[in-house]
Write a protein that binds this DNA or RNA. Structure first.
Lengths: 154, 154
DNA sequence: CCATATTAGTTGCTTGTGCAACTATTGTCA
DNA sequence: TGACAATAGTTGCACAAGCAACTAATATGG
């Protein structure tokens, strides 16, 4: 095989994983601060609430799968949310290991308060792109995720 | 103003910040494990090494700016790197607050070992995209970053 | 039906990160 | 020059996240 250049330098700022990590941190960082400061809700807590808004009566395990958040983190986040009466948690009578989770009235109203902030925030980014660009962006993300899934645990 | 739908639901899986955070974690997660397991180098340590390979004799503060890593993290990472003799750190005689950092011979050889792994890894992702898609991806990342910078600290 | 495996969820522990406070050095300006 | 501000880097501390070990409940296979 051919010899590569000895001065093979990879610029960090051009390295895709780095660029994506930067972008992701910039995006999630700012909005996480908003959730936290204005609503006292952490990022995992907010993600869990989004899932429960869409899929009421989920079990914690389903929340884990949908949010990709580690189960111990979900467990502790749910403790906080139930303690604050934003989430109602009962045990599934059909399988007493499982929990049945749903937003309380209060939880739903907090959700309704935070939601437009999240949407607005996302919109600020999407506004910089044309519709076609947005479509392409999503396609690209999809493709890259597919690659990643194709190479998990060897 | 017009009343919005009461069932205004934002699906988490379609939420851009979430999607990017997922993708970024998938990408950085796998490669970080490789750095760690095979070379005993953490992600911030690797990023610092990349910067020092490109810009020898940088000060720690310059490393912070280029890597966007918090200065205490850089400080501790540099302590480990110097302890392992991968980085040489002296104090700048012209300004004795500053440090002058560069990879040692060992550091450069470790860098040379890790670099192709990083490049290969990135290549696995880029291989899923056409050249035109890669260009567009970078443009999109750039645009989104620009938005983010346009709305820091209000 | 019993022993064992599997699953849901919780908790303990280690580690990494970020903020703030601190030290040491240099820059500024009256 | 001399008081005060600013900067480079370190360290203490608090908190979040992930892994592993654990409990409790259910599924499975002989």
């Amino acid at each position: 095989m051919a010899r590569k250049s000895l001065h093979n330098i990879l610029k960090l700022e051009n390295f895709l994983p780095y660029r994506l990590s930067l972008l992701s941190n910039l995006m999630s960082g700012a909005i996480a601060r908003t959730y936290e400061d204005k609503f006292g809700i952490s990022m995992p807590e907010w993600r869990i609430m989004m899932i429960l808004a869409e899929y009421p009566d989920s079990a914690a395990e389903a929340v884990c799968q949908r949010t990709r958040i580690e189960k111990s983190v979900v467990s502790r986040a749910l403790s906080r949310l139930t303690k604050r009466r934003l989430v109602d948690r009962k045990t599934d009578p059909a399988d007493r290991r499982r929990s049945v989770l749903r937003l309380t009235e209060t939880g739903m109203s907090v959700y309704a308060d935070v939601l437009p902030v999240a949407i607005d925030y996302e919109q600020q980014f999407l506004a910089a792109l044309s519709d076609e660009e947005i479509t392409r962006l999503n396609q690209l993300i999809e493709k890259l995720m597919a690659v990643s899934h194709g190479m998990e645990k060897p």
